[in-house]
């Protein structure tokens, strides 16, 4: 059973978002890392790039599969997590401890469109 944390927001594409004021941290869920298997490569955008909600901001690759990273909400990248990029196994070890990008949120209203823990648990149940 994949881990789901109560305090986070989730997308249907298996990204999580932790919100702290107007700053957000984005990562992939435990369910996603489990499905990918051993992650071989993560490509993240440089600070300053702006993405709308739902836009592709990066990619996660394992040996046999690859998955685009989609922006949960609109925002500008403030920082990327170099350590996750360099050591992708950290995401496999604890997907919620290894955020991928830190963003500045533009519209707090967009949070309403994201899933909360119970809905996300339901989504990944089978």
């Amino acid at each position: 059973m994949a881990k789901v944390l109560d305090e986070l927001y989730y997308t249907e594409d298996h990204e999580w978002l932790r919100v702290d004021g107007n700053v957000g941290f984005v990562g992939i869920t435990d369910f996603a890392q489990g499905h990918l298997g051993d992650i071989a490569y993560i490509e993240l955008p440089d600070a300053g790039s702006r993405f709308a909600a739902g836009e592709v901001f990066g990619v996660v690759e394992s040996i046999k599969t690859a998955s685009d990273l989609l922006m949960p909400v609109s925002g500008t990248v403030a920082e990327k997590n170099d350590s996750a990029e360099q050591s992708p196994e950290k995401v496999n070890a604890d997907a919620y401890d290894s955020w991928l990008i830190k963003i500045e949120l533009e519209d707090m209203g967009e949070l309403d469109k994201l899933l909360r823990a119970d809905a996300y648990t339901e989504l990944t149940k089978e």
């Binding site: 051993d38 071989a40 490569y41 690759e61 040996i63 992708p88």
Partner: peptide
């Protein structure tokens, strides 16, 4: 063969 190593 260690394919993960090859890709990482």
């Amino acid at each position: 063969i260690d394919e993960l190593k090859a890709a990482k």
